Computed example of a mutant assay.
Amino acid sequence: SLRTLTLYNFNTSYSFGIKDPVMEKDNSVVSRLGRMKETFEKEGLRKTVEAIIIVHNHNHPHILLLKIANTFFKLPGGKLKPGENEVEGLIRKLTKKLSPLGTAEADSPWEVGENIATWWRPNFEQVLYPYTPPHISKPKECKKLYVVTLPEKCTFAVPSNLELIAVPLFEIFNNSQRYGAIISSIPQLISKFHYVYLSLD
């Protein structure tokens, strides 16, 4: 049986504020992979959690993405602390990145649902796979995607150097050129849900 998710209208249910920019720690892919390597030597496997936040616009499902400098898109989320619980870590990351300053994690609006996909980074390279290649015994990163739903009202506050956008599934589907392999696979992943579209007038 299909699980039902209630989606609210992105434009009428949510309000938006701005907060200080969150600076990317790396200004290039090369420096990011270099930093990842250093951390791996200290902490071992990097664990990241990301949210597939589903809303609707004109009764069509959309995914919330963070847009950086007009060219790069990512799912909200981030790296877990060593030993941190995945769901708690995801709520911490979402609260930090998307909630107004001073919001306690306990008051945050995120309803974390199921872990719907796991991706692996076998080497210190850009590429991730939805499985571990057979010859890889020590993958470098494990990235888990969770479905996250929102209440009918909440306020976001987005760092001023990022933009939170709602992108329709038909725009993302099969569009790995623009969105990358992970984001473009999301429409298939969430096709198992049945959606109820609610709009507040």
Results as ranks from 00 to 15, higher is better:
Arg92Trp: 04
Pro21Val: 04
Ile182Val: 14
Glu152Val: 08
Val148Thr: 08
Phe10Tyr: 15
Tyr179Leu: 02
Asn70Lys: 05
Ser137Trp: 10
Gly17Asp: 15
Glu141Met: 07
Pro151Val: 09
Glu152Phe: 09
Ile186Gln: 05
Thr4Asn: 09
Lys37Glu: 14
Lys19Cys: 10
Asp107Met: 04
Ser31Thr: 15
Glu125Ile: 03
Val55Pro: 01
Tyr8Asp: 07
Arg46Gly: 06
Glu171His: 02
Glu24Val: 08
Ser28Asn: 03
Glu88Ile: 05
Lys96Glu: 13
Lys25Arg: 15
Ala106Gln: 13
Leu45Arg: 03
Gly77Cys: 10
Ile186Asp: 04
Gly83Glu: 05
Leu2Ser: 14
Ile91Lys: 15
Thr12Asn: 10
Ser176Glu: 13
Val22Phe: 12
Glu125Trp: 05
Glu111Thr: 08
Ala69Lys: 13
Val55Arg: 03
Phe16Asn: 08
Ala117Val: 06
Thr6His: 12
Ala69Gln: 13
Ile18Asp: 10
Glu38Met: 12
Leu150Ala: 03
Glu50Gln: 15
Val147Cys: 12
Glu105Leu: 05
Ser191His: 13
Leu150Pro: 02
Ser99Trp: 02
Glu163Tyr: 12
Lys192Pro: 04
His60Asn: 11
Lys153Thr: 12
Leu198Tyr: 14
Phe73Glu: 01
His58Tyr: 13
Thr48Val: 12
Ile182Gly: 02
Met36Pro: 02
Val158Ser: 11
Thr39Glu: 15
Phe16Gly: 08
Ile63Arg: 01
Arg92Gly: 00
Asp201His: 09
Glu41Met: 12
Leu162Val: 00
